[in-house]
Computed example of a mutant assay.
Amino acid sequence: MKVPVKVGGRDLTLSNLDKVLYPDFGFTKAEIIDYYSRVAPVLLPHLAGRPLTVKRYPNGVNGPFFFEKNAPDHTPGWVRLATLPAPGSTKNRETIDFAIVEDLPTLVYYANLAALELHVPQWRVDDDGEPLPPDTLVFDLDPGPPATIVECCRVALMLREVLAGEGLTARPKTSGNKGMQLYADWDCREEPSTYAKRLAQLLEKEHRDQVVSVMAKKARPGKVFIDWSQNNPAKTTVAPYSLRARERPTVSAPLLWKEVEGCERPDELVFTAPDVLARVEKHGDLFGRA
């Protein structure tokens, strides 16, 4: 069943609204569109200017999915696109037409495509669609079992202190999966991956029983891998407030530092879409604060 709607003055056709995309939670496409519509005021500023990569799950989180960078052929003409080089494209494209999600109609358009996960780089494009220097530094903290997000929180506190010593203010969020990320505004003092790698190696040297800075899986059990490579311009990280394709509709949720400091059990930092809407109503955009 198709439902014509008007969103922000744009005409859209929504489809399969009663389709359950999170079977274990009974969460439907209509509820996904509702979540993204309601969280849009705090989400859109973190997507603005950033080329979008999505993970689409047309048959739900238990079905096959695909990454999509190139805007679909049926993308409405009013969706902002940026045509950017595509070095190493797996589809042999020279360029990719990336969507730039800056308004509610575009966000709803993608939610209707079952684009559950929204991923963006640490840089933006200018008004002409040309890439700007990176404006964000990110550290992806990935726990190697049996370590959990509890151990990630301890490493996050160490990293917060190191960054503060460098004059950078860290902001924490969950990944919506097993780990978490720390972000900081970036001033291009040097190449960001090189800088992030150096800090990761510093913490590994000081806390070898807790931290690892190398990719090798065999080095990770019981430790937290600080993935500094997310700062590569070709890479993306899940956006703040994005859903994740887990058993439940978990969200990459911005955190209060006191939540990080006090975390004792992994389930304390698991937030679903309804949880995050309640948090936004209470706190506003935690990721918008320095």
Rank of each mutant, 00 (worst) to 15 (best):
A164L: 13
E191I: 14
E191C: 14
S175T: 15
A184Q: 05
L199Q: 02
P172F: 05
R198A: 13
L199V: 05
G179P: 01
G176C: 01
C188E: 14
T194Q: 09
P172Y: 00
L168T: 07
Q181H: 15
K197L: 15
E190L: 09
A200I: 00
T174I: 08
S193N: 11
Y183T: 09
R198D: 12
A164G: 11
D185H: 11
A184R: 01
D187A: 09
K197R: 10
M180T: 01
T194F: 10
Y183K: 08
L199P: 04
L199W: 05
Q181G: 09
G167P: 09
A200R: 00
K178E: 13
A184V: 09
P192S: 06
C188F: 07
S175H: 04
C188L: 14
R171T: 14
R189K: 08
D185M: 12
C188H: 14
R198K: 13
P192N: 03
K178W: 09
E166M: 11
E191D: 11
G179H: 00
C188V: 10
P192E: 07
K197S: 09
K197N: 07
E190F: 08
A196F: 00
R171N: 03
S193L: 10
C188S: 12
M180F: 00
Y183E: 05
S175Q: 03
Y195K: 01
D185W: 08
S193Q: 15
K173G: 00
R171M: 12
E191Y: 12
L202A: 06
L199T: 03
K197F: 12
Y195P: 05
S175W: 05
Y183P: 04
G179A: 04
L182D: 03
A164V: 08
Q181Y: 09
L202G: 09
Y183R: 05
S175F: 03
N177M: 13
G176L: 04
E191N: 13
A184S: 14
E190H: 04
D187E: 15
K197T: 08
D187R: 11
R171K: 15
D187F: 11
K173N: 08
G165L: 07
D185G: 11
G167M: 08
E190D: 15
G179F: 03
W186G: 02
A200N: 01
Y195G: 05
A170N: 02
R171H: 05
R198G: 09
T169L: 13
Y183N: 02
Y183Q: 02
K173P: 05
